[in-house]
Design a protein around this nucleic acid. Structure first.
Length: 272
DNA sequence: AAGGAGGTCAACCGCTGGATG
DNA sequence: CCATCCAGCGGTTGACCTCCT
């Protein structure tokens, strides 16, 4: 089978093998550079992708003249140079989505990243490790424990929803979500100003405009105190998403304030 | 002003699974 | 069916930055 991919690979290899033989050396013979990228390297990489498209990363050293491994180039492109990459603070909406998706998929960072257009798996992973793991530690909880997961799902996410809604009702746009720094055609997720009340003891409400809902049906969930509502997160559909521009000023707000951590610590102390 | 501690994030490493010969 | 190659993934590291003492 001679797919376009294999044709391209053969083309790359033959280019490497003949025309540029004076300059070509395989990665194993060439001293590959490591560490931070320079502007010059970035523009070489951008030019390469503009001409050859993404992929064929292992041919890049020979073709673009970059003394970087294919892996390194790929990572630089995906996490930094790609036109759609969105940088800056993780918004409350994004935090909520990350928590929700992580509760469902675990450490499937790339899968989670797919639901947050413009965000990279690396960024989400970093967010999780630097914020969520840290707070789990502070709460003396194993981040993978049921205790922590339940707290996130049944207490923290509703609380976050309240925060979002409160911000929205104070004249902020309710549709701030994912937008990229540059023009793109990727869908972005929108959380409409909700819906039914996301209070911590509400039995059910939609998270994403009808897509996700909590329902009281998990028998072994938290069972007492103010977080006694037992719920499960049902699968939701992100297909009805819209592209929107950021327009509120709570996007950079942090969920993990001292006050909130205190609240959680108290809660956990009461319930366990 | 200095330096130590802690946080952030870009980049690297090692592994895995799929594609190909 | 097997060996090899490669892209992609998740975990980890380390440089840099900020804050605190």
């Amino acid at each position: 089978m001679d797919t376009e991919y294999t044709r391209n690979v053969h083309m790359m290899r033959s280019l490497s093998d003949c025309g540029s033989s004076a300059t070509y050396e395989s990665e194993e013979h060439m001293v590959m550079k490591k560490g931070p990228w320079t502007e010059e390297e970035d523009s070489l990489l951008i030019n390469y992708v503009n001409v050859h498209g993404e992929g064929h990363w292992n041919s890049i050293a020979s073709i673009a003249g970059l003394k970087r491994t294919g892996k390194s180039c790929r990572l630089r492109w995906l996490n930094y140079l790609r036109p759609n990459v969105r940088r800056g603070n993780i918004t409350l909406h994004e935090q909520l989505l990350i928590l929700e998706l992580h509760s469902r998929w675990g450490n499937r960072w790339s899968k989670i990243a797919e639901e947050l257009p413009g965000r990279t798996d690396n960024e989400i992973k970093n967010y999780w490790r630097t914020r969520v793991l840290k707070q789990a530690k502070q709460l003396k909880c194993d981040v993978n424990s049921k205790k922590f997961r339940d707290t996130m799902r049944f207490v923290w996410m509703p609380r976050l929803m309240e925060q979002i809604q409160a911000s929205s009702s104070h004249g902020h746009s309710q549709t701030t979500m994912f937008s990229n720094t540059q023009a793109h055609t990727e869908p972005c997720v929108t959380i409409p100003t909700m819906l039914s009340v996301p209070s911590s003891d509400s039995m059910s409400y939609n998270l994403m405009g009808g897509g996700c809902s909590f329902s009281s049906s998990e028998p072994d969930s938290l069972e007492k105190g103010s977080i006694s509502t037992s719920c499960i997160l049902e699968p939701k559909d992100y297909s009805g998403v819209q592209v929107v521009e950021p327009s509120n000023d709570f996007g950079g707000a942090d969920l993990w304030t001292d006050e909130n951590i205190c609240f959680l610590q108290q809660l956990l102390a009461d319930d366990y």
